[in-house]
Measured scan of single mutants.
Amino acid sequence: MQRVNMIMAESPGLITICLLGYLLSAECTVFLDHENANKILNRPKRYNSGKLEEFVQGNLERECMEEKCSFEEAREVFENTERTTEFWKQYVDGDQCESNPCLNGGSCKDDINSYECWCPFGFEGKNCELDVTCNIKNGRCEQFCKNSADNKVVCSCTEGYRLAENQKSCEPAVPFPCGRVSVSQTSKLTRAETVFPDVDYVNSTEAETILDNITQSTQSFNDFTRVVGGEDAKPGQFPWQVVLNGKVDAFCGGSIVNEKWIVTAAHCVETGVKITVVAGEHNIEETEHTEQKRNVIRIIPHHNYNAAINKYNHDIALLELDEPLVLNSYVTPICIADKEYTNIFLKFGSGYVSGWGRVFHKGRSALVLQYLRVPLVDRATCLRSTKFTIYNNMFCAGFHEGGRDSCQGDSGGPHVTEVEGTSFLTGIISWGEECAMKGKYGIYTKVSRYVNWIKEKTKLT
């Protein structure tokens, strides 16, 4: 034993070699072989497995989906700052455009905790909710729209109204504003409101030439003092309507412009014939205590009207009353817009006519005020429907199939267009061939041609 100890002390290297040989010859039971080890760690190889990531292109799944990435790591994937920024906006807080917040056709661009709407022409605001041009839906104005110097929408209202708090709607500024039905039992019968379409306001006024200088022999019209197929109006439903009495009662109609003036057809009036105007009328054979009678003290036909040349060209006249009318729910003026808007309103496509005229061709006159909704007829169809001249200051309205029309005794009465609950004068009943005849239409004086003249002559002093 002493000898062994001496050998170990003198030859430590020998001992180490012996131990190493023993270990190498022993069977290893701690580690699995290569094949079995792979069965336990069965993990798919990654895209760049075996390579240094710093030297390969980034992978979106590896960089940002398996674990949260930084902007720089995302930049490695896209290799483009702009594309990385677009991805980053949604990656950080989701897609803010998912709810489609942009209105009126706006395009949404996502941002971090926010979004941006790219608005089409005519709109602005956070969600493109603000109209900035009158060309689109009248700028959301209830009545009139004008573009300011910086191309912003400025709404306005006709006389007797003021802008509401929203700067879009119009509200009454006087007790009985024009064009409004205020009798409670008839307010439910107000005709369907007309909503502004998209309009090209630059070209809204037709490029028409008034044929002022045409000389033409007097034409022989049949029954051209021209509501057939209409309905009984309720008291106060058309408070701007008046009836004219002269040699015979209810020979023509008219509309209240203001307390002192009536507008009617020029062919209705004769110099030297006494005319009485009755406002607030409903049943011409009954006294309903809503009527107001006034005498006409002055007749002003349009300066281009000449019955000797043509009885229905420039067929418009103004009547001055001896005493002002007292405005109330049964006696209310009709609204008159400017030339541009009167023309736009007419193009809405349908209007209402009213009167006490004959209820059928050569038949009896109506006792109760009649009204009828009539569609506008395109000019080409209008011209083809008659052998008589249709001037540019006239328009056609009615039904091709016949059966409904204005008729004798309705002449001078109103053709009105309702705009968001307020009625505007767009025409004056003038003439036609018979009444409600198939293929024939009622012919009306186009008020847009005469609004400046009306307003100039009827100013209240």
Results as ranks from 00 to 15, higher is better:
K440A: 08
F71S: 03
T81M: 11
G21F: 13
I210V: 12
R162T: 12
R294S: 02
Q96I: 10
C102H: 02
I15V: 09
F388Y: 13
C145P: 00
F176R: 05
K362T: 09
G94F: 06
I284K: 08
R298L: 04
K459A: 08
P175T: 09
E259H: 06
L425M: 04
R373Q: 14
T389A: 15
I297P: 01
G58N: 04
D223N: 11
C170Y: 01
G122K: 05
W453T: 00
T386W: 06
C268T: 00
I17S: 03
I214G: 07
D315I: 00
N59I: 01
P197S: 12
L103K: 11
E418V: 09
I316F: 01
A307G: 12
E73S: 00
C102F: 01
I429C: 07
K274S: 08
K188R: 10
N138L: 07
A173F: 09
I275M: 08
G105E: 07
F221W: 14
E79R: 06
Y371I: 12
F221C: 08
N104D: 03
L189F: 14
Q143C: 00
D212T: 13
K457W: 07
V153S: 12
K260I: 04
I40K: 04
E76G: 02
V257Y: 03
E72S: 06
D249I: 06
L103R: 09
H282S: 11
Y441T: 06
I262G: 02
I297T: 10
P239D: 00
G105I: 03
V419K: 04
F144A: 00
L130G: 10
S114H: 12
C268V: 01
I15A: 10
V447H: 00
V243H: 07
D93H: 12
A266G: 05
D95Y: 11
A173D: 11
D150M: 10
E320S: 02
V30M: 12
G58V: 02
S107E: 13
R379P: 15
N313C: 05
L14N: 03
E323L: 08
A149H: 10
S184G: 08
V257K: 01
G412Y: 08
C119A: 02
I309E: 11
I136G: 07
C117Q: 02
A149F: 12
N38I: 10
G13F: 12
I136V: 10
F424I: 01
K362R: 15
V30W: 14
C435L: 03
D33L: 12
T422K: 05
A308H: 10
N213T: 08
Q185E: 14
N393Q: 05
I454W: 00
Y450M: 02
D249C: 03
I40F: 08
G272L: 06
W356F: 11
V269A: 10
M65R: 08
V248M: 07
Y115Q: 04
E124R: 06
G106A: 08
